[in-house]
Design a protein around this nucleic acid. Sequence first.
DNA 1: CGTACTATTGAGCGACCTCAATTGGCGTGG
DNA 2: CCACGCCAATTGAGGTCGCTCAATAGTACG
Lengths: 248, 248
Amino acid sequence: MSDASISNKRGAAVISFASIKAACKDCSLRELCLPRGLDDRELMALDQTVKRRRIVRKGEHLYRMGDPLQLLYAIRSGAMKTSELLGDGRIQVTGFQLPGEILGIDAIDGDRHRCNAEALEISEVCEIPWVKLEELAQRIGGLQHQLLRLMSGEIGREGQLLLMIGKMSADERLLACLYNFSQRQTRLGLSPTDIKLHMSRQDLGDYLGLALETVSRLFSRFQEEGLLTVRGKYVHLTNLETIHTRLG
Amino acid sequence: MSDASISNKRGAAVISFASIKAACKDCSLRELCLPRGLDDRELMALDQTVKRRRIVRKGEHLYRMGDPLQLLYAIRSGAMKTSELLGDGRIQVTGFQLPGEILGIDAIDGDRHRCNAEALEISEVCEIPWVKLEELAQRIGGLQHQLLRLMSGEIGREGQLLLMIGKMSADERLLACLYNFSQRQTRLGLSPTDIKLHMSRQDLGDYLGLALETVSRLFSRFQEEGLLTVRGKYVHLTNLETIHTRLG
DNA sequence: CGTACTATTGAGCGACCTCAATTGGCGTGG
DNA sequence: CCACGCCAATTGAGGTCGCTCAATAGTACG
């Protein structure tokens, strides 16, 4: 949808988008992403480091648990999910990523990815060789700071999720999750009240520590209570104020 | 216990330990902590950056949610816990920290601490001014790498906890937690089978997303099953093999 | 030796899960 | 264009794990 230029949906790639060179300085997401706060000269250096852009189709993986760390990924369009899994197949989704967000930094300690990263829909990502990026961060103070900030942010987000799953009731979890989506969509210049759920109910459940049926029932109940209206993947928050206050 | 020199338990500090200067190069935890992999010259520079050592008593806080980020803390002895809380008082413990581990890195994004850090028993920490450390990391490649590694490790640990709380049953959670304690104690050169629980049952419950009564009941059940023996804060794992296999 | 806190154990209940049937949306092929 | 099949989502019934409330036992410390 957001990538109208890709018309052929199942055959081999018709046009080799994969080799298009990225250019942070022209990217609309610059201030949300890794380059935030860098000056023109530094931006050029970063651009030379970023390898290329790449299209990932729905269901395709950027990496899997155990893969050696080679690239970080910055999302340009689309949506991804990261998940860990237990030996017997139980899944915990650890995050959903939107444009401007970075994937892969969990793997720096241990040099291997600790989770799977899968596209929820057709997406475009920038590939960033980790070794080069670390070298560059050594030379550019602002980039080191930005990297540390990104990682710290990830820690904060996981802490939030921990609090949600560990101490919130099912309805609080889903509400907090929707509120979070609303805020992140706003950051991207989209509506705070009209949310697109890029993931399935199953994914939402696996993220919030709930069964998919519980998620579905909650949507119905919220609708009865007049908090929102649902139509498939689209949720309209009719009462953002109430939602905010109900979260304390 | 580990700090026999501190005899006066509730009055004002008799001896001013607080101003003792740290010395990474002489520290037995060097290879577990921030200085890992640094050479002698770099170690000297780091030593000049580390502010001082400090004693924290049981129940004392290193920082609280909302405090501005000024110092990171490296634990030399004792044990700490970090926790987040909801408006209405509900608590989620996000981690327990042992000697050689670093506290405070959650605050880099946003410049304010996102959790409370409280001593579980009398402990000794090294204070590290964050601003100086970041500057130093800009000059010392190994230190930048070490910082990034530490943060990535924190992300990994939180991810593990997420998986535990989100997708494991109560008994699996406690077992996984004990197994983790066993591994970390081993790293410190202590026994893999004789574990000291530095925290209360309440804290354990708040960490694992369980009621304290559930934790207590599980200990009793594990004892009946012959997996371990409990005496207050001391747990002896009689069957580390079985525990490991039961975790898949 | 008493006080206060922490841990254990029991009984009953409720939130959320599991299993199962039904409905709805969408692409594919006749 | 409609029928069919497939998958996702909804809804219902019943079960269970872990919580809450409450009483008792154990432990630390003055």
